[in-house]
Simulated scan of single mutants.
Amino acid sequence: MQATDSTPPQPSGSRGHKGYWRAATYFCLLLLAVGATAGVSMYEQFVAQIHDLQQKVQQTAQLQYVAVLMDDKGEPAMLVTQEFGQPYLQLQRLNSVVEGQEDSMQLWALPASGTAQSLGVLPPKLKTLRLPATASALDAVSKLGMSVEARGGVTQAQGPRLPYLLTGSVIRKAL
């Protein structure tokens, strides 16, 4: 007589299914780990981009006041700007008008009520320049005017020579 195996035969399909489910579980866990890592990485990149953009915004000039002074023909002749909190006015000539040998151009603040206040004398023939001014120099000003005066400008007591060569409204930019 021959010895027979007393263990009953196992169905071949049940063992294969256990291995399949185990492999599928490991694969899903691997996908979750990769997804979580990618999500964290994308979040970190997003935070870094926001930080970079915030720094760029802080470094970008923020204009507080803008005025375009027009000539007698209604053409833009001078751009006057003041950045928020800066102690100067930035001027840029927009036309080719220059003062004569014995003349100076002087910028005046023209408040809605009261007398004109001198903001400074422009050096001759410069296209762009900065005039020292307080950070609040244009707070109560509704218009600016440019007069032609004797070389070196005139004192506050003398006042501007009229009519103004250039005039324009001051616009306070909403920040």
Rank of each mutant, 00 (worst) to 15 (best):
H51A: 14
M42E: 14
P111C: 04
A109E: 06
G13W: 11
G145M: 01
P76S: 03
Y164W: 06
A174S: 11
D5R: 10
F84Q: 14
M1Y: 06
L162E: 07
V57C: 00
G74N: 02
C28P: 00
Q58T: 00
L166D: 02
R130I: 01
E75T: 09
L119G: 12
E75G: 01
L32Q: 12
V66P: 02
G100L: 11
V40A: 13
D52Q: 12
F84I: 07
A116W: 03
L162H: 07
L79G: 01
L32G: 06
Q82R: 06
L94M: 02
P76M: 03
M78G: 00
L138N: 06
L29A: 15
R172H: 07
A36V: 12
G120C: 08
L138K: 04
K18H: 06
S136A: 11
L138F: 07
Y43K: 12
Q117I: 15
Y20Q: 07
L53D: 11
P124E: 04
S96H: 09
G145H: 02
L138G: 06
S104E: 03
A140D: 14
L126G: 00
V66R: 13
L29E: 10
P160V: 12
R130D: 01
A61G: 02
Y164G: 03
M146F: 01
S96V: 07
Y164N: 02
Q49V: 04
C28V: 15
L166Q: 08
L53W: 08
L162Q: 14
A61N: 00
V34G: 07
F27W: 13
A116H: 10
K143Q: 15
Q10A: 15
L144Y: 06
G13V: 12
L89H: 06
T155D: 13
L119C: 10
V80A: 00
A174V: 08
L144C: 04
L144A: 04
Q55E: 11
A174E: 14
L165I: 08
A24W: 04
L29D: 10
Q92K: 09
A77G: 00
Y43S: 14
M1I: 04
V98G: 07
F84V: 12
R93D: 02
M1R: 10
L122Y: 04
A135P: 00
G152D: 02
R93C: 03
M42K: 11
V154G: 11
A150G: 13
S113R: 15
M1V: 05
Q101G: 01
D103V: 07
Q58Y: 01
L122D: 05
A109D: 09
L129F: 05
D139Y: 12
T25A: 15
L162C: 02
S118T: 15
G16D: 11
Q55C: 03
Q64V: 00
T167Y: 01
L110G: 04
